[in-house]
Design a protein around this nucleic acid. Structure first.
Lengths: 181, 181
DNA sequence: AAATTATGTCAACATGACTGACATAAATTT
DNA sequence: AAATTTATGTCAGTCATGTTGACATAATTT
């Protein structure tokens, strides 16, 4: 019971570690934890006033950014089940943040669009997050923002069929719907 | 939720402009979303095999990294209630990943330590995440890793009383409790 | 006509948050 | 010494958001 090992970082090495070379990057792991916690925390406070949670934020964000998104696309992005999405999406539609429209070529599809009300909410949330990012980039050298973008891109799995992710990774720097594919 | 009230207090940069100007940095916002999703996704798969979730990961990670952590410290780090922590912590203790020991000077305190079993799990999870980070850093110029660290640090609220965060931000680059070196 | 696809919905359940109330032992203050 | 505060644990109920499985409907494709 009292096996304590106060200093233990290196002693545990299972024999069958295949391609593990470097020491754990503890500091970056923890910086990512804290940075993301505070990054989403900005939005949480505002969302609470609206009676929404993070799930609503993710939905309205991507719908706003990629107008005409299909429900199926959204499921790929968020990696949740349609039942889970359904509840949140229904609330956003009922309260007038999102509207649906049947697809023209395929009338089964429900294309999603943010209303002005929805856009205002997204803008408010994105503004907070942008302020934080801008402040963080300010302390870096001129190439810093580019380095950060490159790092984040490389952290993402590229073998994902998600259409929105392909646009994000595709290189569009500030606009959605870059049809270069 | 443990609201920390960081709205009015000084931002990361003293005497600089009060932000609120630039266009939303959509791409970085979305890159952060995807990067963090995949970053924690690595661990999720392993955790599932152990019958654990992300909550367990966060607890065992910080206990391993900061041996002798008090329950109260952990609550500050994770920003959850003691009831919430209690359930997860109890499982980790019952299954032999963490042990408790009463504090010497203050016997009310339950100091937490990872067992070898707990250390092995943390090492496995940190290995996966480190592999991803290492791969992402590989494509950057030599100063890239430093830029990334600086960016992440600046993304974090600095007016947090969390003792662990103070250590993380304090500058220890690769080990916990470096004060004894 | 039959099969497939896109979406929606009902029902039950799991996890990990939450609030509020109360219990205990140890430390601190009066 | 007694009273209070602190660190922790626990019971009970609720909420948000995820899950699986089954089934329904309309539109498209075969």
């Amino acid at each position: 019971m009292t096996d304590i090992n106060l200093k233990g970082t290196g002693s545990v090495r299972p024999a069958e570690q295949p391609t593990r070379s470097g020491e754990p990057l503890w500091d970056i792991i923890e910086l990512l934890f804290y940075a993301y916690r505070d990054f989403v925390g900005d939005a949480d406070d505002v969302l609470k006033e609206f009676g929404f949670g993070r799930a609503h934020h993710r939905v309205i964000h991507f719908v706003h950014r990629y107008p005409g998104l299909k429900v199926a696309d959204l499921l790929d992005v968020l990696r949740i089940t349609k039942q889970s999405l359904g509840r949140v999406l229904k609330q956003l539609i009922d309260e007038g943040y999102i509207v649906q429209r049947a697809g023209e070529s395929d009338k089964r599809q429900r294309l999603l669009f943010a209303t002005p009300k929805g856009e205002a909410l997204v803008a408010k949330l994105a503004g907070l997050q942008t302020d934080r990012i801008t402040a963080a980039l300010k302390g870096l050298d001129p190439a810093g923002a580019d380095t950060v973008r490159r790092f984040l891109r490389a952290m993402i799995d590229h073998d994902d069929p998600d259409k929105v992710l392909q646009i994000v990774l595709g290189g569009a720097r500030s606009g959605p719907r870059d049809t270069t594919r």
